[in-house]
Simulated scan of single mutants.
Amino acid sequence: MGILGNGFSRQSLIYVIYILLLIPGIFVAVTEMGFETNIRKAIAFNLSGPVSLGVAAIFCYRRTVTMNQMKIILWAFLLPLVSTTTYLFLYTPDLREVITSTGSNFAASGGFGPNQMASVLGIGIFVLAVRFFLSKEGIVHKGFDLFLLGLLAFRALATFSRGGVITGVVMILSFLGLYYLKGNLKTKFRIKFLSLVFSGAIIFIWLMSSLQTSGLLDKRYANQDAAGREKADVTTGRSDLLAQEFSEFMDHPFLGVGVGKIKEIRLNETGIAAASHNEMSRIVAEHGLFGLFAFAILLITPLIYRIGNRQNLFFFSFYFFWLLTVNHSAMRIAAPGFIYALSLLNITYKTKPTKKQELKPVS
């Protein structure tokens, strides 16, 4: 609706090309998939995320918003995540009953995928951190933001899915790095002071989470099992999926194996019906060179745009969220694509003139 009502930049046609590059893989899938596979469902499942990313990117590319509008967007992110966190506390009020190992925990994730739950809670943690550092409200408001952040961080850690939490941390560090570089001396001093307070809160949250999980949280992030033995594979099987998908790309370099076909191949070869965790390896395996060019467009276009436009204070936070999330959780949720598109926005920091500024001197 936004594209139809407000149009889009001509430069965003690069993302139209990206979407078109995904089409050949559909025809390959139709001709190659087995009769037992629901082709329509397989295509929709694997392309809904990449196509939604393309549409969002077309709309957002070089579009200008104000800083206040961006704050409203971030606030809109946060509200449903507070509701989600409330649901998690109601679903599993006592974590000690359900956390008995160092594996990702569905019960602590409200019955949803721990990877996806940790990813969206990581967004909430980032938004609250941004509010904490940018808000000029008093100590009560900042304290409330830290309290909410503590609740979201506690439940994110309780999923025992590391990817979403680590991604949230990278987003916060990226934001603070840009904010510090752009700030004046007064702003830099303020960031340093607030960082000390923020770091203290994070340490407290970690200690409380560790106590509530009987120390299993520390073992999880140290890549150990419940007995304290180090696990052989820190990627929990993702490296095997990655290797297989790159192997299929080498065997089918031009058109790939077809949309959704990689899951069928994996089932036939290993007997395991596992979907890919990595969007980069999946897109090249299923689309071949077309997928390689499509992913290159996603990877490079924002960086080129960033060279000429450095107004988006959240650019690297949004960009890294997309890049890290699609490499540990693929595009099973819409968040990576939508947030990727936000990195393509141009943000203005102009404020409305005050009444004193509006008054012109009488000649």
Rank of each mutant, 00 (worst) to 15 (best):
F35D: 15
G258V: 03
I26Y: 10
R229I: 03
A296P: 00
K186M: 06
G228H: 00
Q224W: 01
G2L: 10
Q212V: 01
K350E: 15
I265C: 01
G138V: 01
P24V: 05
K182V: 00
L22C: 05
Y340H: 02
S104M: 14
A56N: 03
Y91Q: 13
I139D: 04
A335S: 14
E358L: 13
T84Q: 13
V51K: 05
I139C: 02
Y340M: 00
V169T: 06
V127G: 09
I265E: 05
D94M: 13
H141N: 07
K188R: 14
T325I: 06
V98H: 13
I19C: 06
T354L: 12
V82W: 06
A341I: 03
G111M: 12
A341Q: 03
Y18Q: 02
V165G: 10
S83W: 12
I43Y: 12
R266Y: 12
I125C: 14
Q11A: 11
N268M: 14
P353I: 07
F315I: 10
F293I: 11
A153L: 14
L292P: 01
G111C: 11
S276F: 05
W75Q: 14
V170D: 03
I3V: 08
G111V: 09
S329Q: 14
A42Y: 10
T86W: 14
A232Y: 02
Y15L: 00
Q212L: 08
S210E: 07
F133R: 06
G177P: 02
I297W: 04
L88P: 05
I73A: 15
K186C: 00
M33H: 06
K231N: 04
F106Q: 09
G260K: 06
K355I: 12
S209W: 01
T325F: 04
K263R: 14
I347E: 10
I73P: 08
T102N: 05
E279L: 13
Q212I: 00
D233L: 02
I123D: 04
A294S: 06
F8I: 03
